[in-house]
């Protein structure tokens, strides 16, 4: 009856045991080539195994239904602790949930509105506003609307012709976007703080964060996956450093 097992047995895979600190193994599943001594398993290979280990899922794209999501799900079904969790993947990629959970954890955010109505936005905020897609299909990020017709166009295009709602926030300062890798970034202190906190809450190792600077204050506005080509050699180095660190420190005890 269990065909799964049969097919898995046909593919023999060497089980990497990384006895770094002598206690536990860390299994790194990555769709990115990493210059490290640690054994790295490809997502497609991992998905056909039943290796139980603390799993670090490295992927440039963790969106729902993408391989990055299925890797975390597979680890969870096997009963392994995994970074990031499938639940965090879902929530981090839905702006209203990102903002809700972030603000609960004390990360500064702005008021937001989930809607598909131009009128409702206009009765809630002054222009300009920032419009994010709520469906996590796109890499598109956000659009800034300075007037009614731009808002109308943004709601229509980011909401895929009203099929989905959008998430609107007021634009009170300037938007700024940066890469966050295991919560690390090479930015000013206030930005770095946000980046670390977002990682503490959602544990998404690789992403882009959108923030808004209003005077000296920094507010979280959005999170987005990275395209593979956006990852530079320096980023890849940081990823390698972080996973070596994880396996050394026994920092794997999560949740």
């Amino acid at each position: 009856m269990n065909i799964n097992v049969q097919l898995v047995l046909n593919t023999t895979i060497a089980i990497p045991s990384i006895q770094s600190s002598g206690v536990t193994c860390v299994l790194v599943v990555s769709n990115i080539d990493l210059p490290t001594n640690l054994a790295i398993m490809k997502p497609s290979t991992f998905l056909e195994t039943s290796i139980k280990d603390f799993t670090v899922n490295i992927n440039n794209d963790y969106r729902y239904l993408k391989t990055g999501y299925y890797v975390s799900l597979h680890a969870e079904i096997l009963g392994s602790p995994v970074i990031p969790s499938s639940e965090n993947i879902l929530d981090a990629n839905r702006i209203p949930l990102l903002l809700l959970k972030a603000s609960k954890a004390g990360i500064p955010t702005l008021p937001f509105l989930v809607t598909d109505s131009v009128k409702q936005v206009m009765s809630s905020f002054e222009f300009p506003v920032v419009v994010f897609a709520v469906n996590p299909f796109s890499y598109e990020g956000f659009e800034i609307a300075k007037n009614r017709s731009a808002l109308y166009r943004a709601i229509k295009s980011l909401g895929r012709n009203y099929k989905f709602a959008v998430c609107v926030q007021p634009l009170l300062g300037e938007m700024f976007t940066f890469k966050s890798i295991f919560g690390r970034c090479k930015q000013a202190k206030s930005i770095e703080q946000i980046s670390r906190k977002v990682y503490d809450v959602f544990e998404v190792p690789i992403c882009k964060l959108h923030i808004q600077r209003i005077g000296k204050k920094v507010h979280l506005c959005g999170l987005q996956p990275l395209r593979k080509e956006e990852l530079l050699a320096v980023d890849v180095e940081i990823i390698s450093e972080e996973i070596s660190q994880l396996s050394k420190n026994g920092d794997y005890l999560i949740g």
Partner: peptide
Amino acid sequence: DPLYTAYIVSKTAWE
């Protein structure tokens, strides 16, 4: 569906 507004409603209520 995790992609629909209903998930946002559900998770918001839950939180």
